[in-house]
Design a protein around this nucleic acid. Structure first.
Lengths: 233, 233
DNA sequence: ACAAAAGTGTTATGATTACACCCATGG
DNA sequence: CCATGGGTGTAATCATAACACTTTTGT
């Protein structure tokens, strides 16, 4: 079977930059999920999960599908990033890449084996292997988007478990933004937004004082947002 | 001549939301350049300038080409906005739209006749006609991007002539952001960035005190930006 | 001389920063 | 009982917001 058109058309792929964060690490870092390519081109190289857009699915749906098929990840935060269209970005011919960014908490996505049985692995951002295609550029763009957006939209919470401590929250921001915050000032500001619900639970198990667990109040945020409230770190 | 592929491919178009601003108007407003479609579908309706991506041009190049061909506009600020991929957004079949935002000063682009001899007209944002395809959605997204970005990147200057007065600058921001600023505070802040060069010229001709003309110092901005400086309105 | 917009400082308020000690827990 | 991270307040500084009058120009 084949498809014929009057004018040439580029192929269109979606590629996903999946950021993972593990709040339990001593020295936490941002990680990215990569899959090892089993086919040419770039056979054996690491690449972003992705694939071609089907005719009966939207771009968002294609991204969600690839996320599930290749990375075994579902129902997470995902947003469109940018569309890359350099002429020679794919040696097979003209292929556009509509890229997406997803944010997940690593605790929930440890196994990281794709259903397609491709090797999928988390890599620290500081230790990325060489990547196929122009995926290095895509990753760079994704990091810039994350760094820029995390400061004025409460998307960072997507990287944490549902319940988290103040310190875990602060570490997450410090990791992404590559800077430190004063503990008291950080808590004061977060507190002032009234977006953290005290769950009553405690993070225990370490030889120090137990820490209170909080949950992000997404409903309240949406309400406030409509009234012109701006989350800002 | 025709082109055959093993798998079906969507067609890919670029569409441009061209914002124009006229600093000389009594009650300035943001405008958008639209072209009247001469062919089906949506024949006779107004639409964003755009067209299909050629195989030998990047997306940015395609956007620049359409800008020139359909709107007669060249060498202006342009950036990619978003890629729209709803399945039924084009009645002809599956067509993705990689959309772009361009910013121009109306003074320089008055004639607004496209070289393709299509009717091209500026419309006030508040008085847009019904638009073809999903172009209303694209315009809405573009406005959100402009409103969000203008506050922390000095892109607003692209809407003004090279030389402008403080009042013109303030009016431009007030128009885009739909709010007012205190004159003294606005000048104080702008002044503090040191990004405006006094050209020595004056805006004369009105029966009131002449206003000093300034120029945006793009070079200095780039230098400061690298050192971590953040423009913020 | 008048109408219209240009230009200019000061004070009050709120937000941000800097900074250090006691508390609770598990081993 | 000790090591470790949790939790808390205050003062100084800086940025923002509010506010009104004099100057210059063209007609």
């Amino acid at each position: 079977m084949s498809y014929t058109y009057k004018y040439p058309r580029p192929a269109v792929a979606v590629d996903c930059v999946i950021f993972g964060y593990d709040h339990r690490l001593e020295e936490p870092d941002l990680q990215i999920l990569l899959i090892e390519r089993k086919l040419a081109p770039f056979k054996g190289k690491w690449a972003l999960p992705g694939g071609f857009v089907q005719m009966n699915e939207t771009l968002d749906a294609a991204a969600a599908r690839e996320l599930k098929e290749e990375a075994g990840i579902e129902k997470v935060y995902i947003e469109q990033l940018y569309t890359f269209g350099e002429i020679d970005r794919d040696p097979r011919g003209r292929v556009l890449s509509v890229s997406y960014v997803a944010l997940v908490n690593l605790e929930k996505h440890r196994p990281s084996a794709g259903t397609d049985a491709e090797a999928a692995e988390w890599f620290s951002l500081n230790k990325l292997p060489p990547l196929a295609f122009d995926h290095k550029t895509i990753v760079k763009t994704a990091i810039e988007r994350l760094r820029g957006k995390v400061r004025y939209q409460p998307i960072g919470f997507e990287l944490l478990p549902d319940e988290f401590t103040f310190t875990e929250l602060q570490n997450m921001y410090e990791t992404i933004l590559q800077r430190t915050f004063d503990k008291r000032n950080f808590r004061k500001k977060m507190d002032s937004y009234g977006l953290l619900i005290d769950t009553g639970g405690m993070r225990r198990g370490k030889p120090n004082r137990a820490a209170k667990l909080y949950r992000f109040d997404g409903k309240r945020y949406k309400t406030l947002e409509k009234r012109g409230f701006l989350f800002e770190l």
